[in-house]
Amino acid sequence: MPFTRFLLPFLALATGCAQGSSGALGQTDTTAACPPSELVCAVAGIDAPIAKGATLPIQVSVTSEGAATPPLSFVSANPAVFKIDDARIHALSPGLASMLITTEGELVVDFLHVWVAEADALRLHRVTTGGLQTSPLPAAMEMLVGDELTLVASPHLGPQRLLGELDAQFEADPAVVLMLDEGVAGSRRIVAKAAGETNVTVKALDIEVAVALTVLEVKP
């Protein structure tokens, strides 16, 4: 069993009630909408600016005692900075604005201040079977024929990793690797196909990043 899978239940206990970003009025928690397997994402909240040009699906729950979550709507206080469609924040320009959480009758139950920042770097991360992402990949890696590697591109500003899903384009030599689009934004599953060398190049937000892959073949 991979170590990360073993770790997940303990991580859930350790995080306790720290579930996402609390609203200014303390009545809601906001997190990025994540698959249940990605526990780190699910408890992290909106803990960084959203990258300009990226989209962040969100999930908001009411934290009150004695009341389930009522029907909610999300409103941007400055649509020039970000807009919200279908529970997704679309980051449009660098800045700061409040996201209002309203229920029927435009009654505000909470709000959250959200930053949008312009990324200055794009980094590649490996997605493990437990869904956790390691630190950024090195510039070069080796694989054996048949090995698989799932990569995700993430925007950064200085030392801070920004939030948001990217519309990224992946390129590599199809004779060496196969790149499968599994429907996860900014991510590809890479399968080593034949011995050789290729650069996996990723473009998003007008930034390009690459990792050099060497695929080796074990000969009997």
Binding site: S64, A67, V108, V109
Partner: peptide, 15 residues
């Protein structure tokens, strides 16, 4: 200006 509702939390909480 929008109406707000802040009575969701039970009395005695952190606030």
């Amino acid at each position: 200006v929008m109406p707000g509702f802040v009575d969701l939390l039970a009395p005695g909480d952190a606030y």
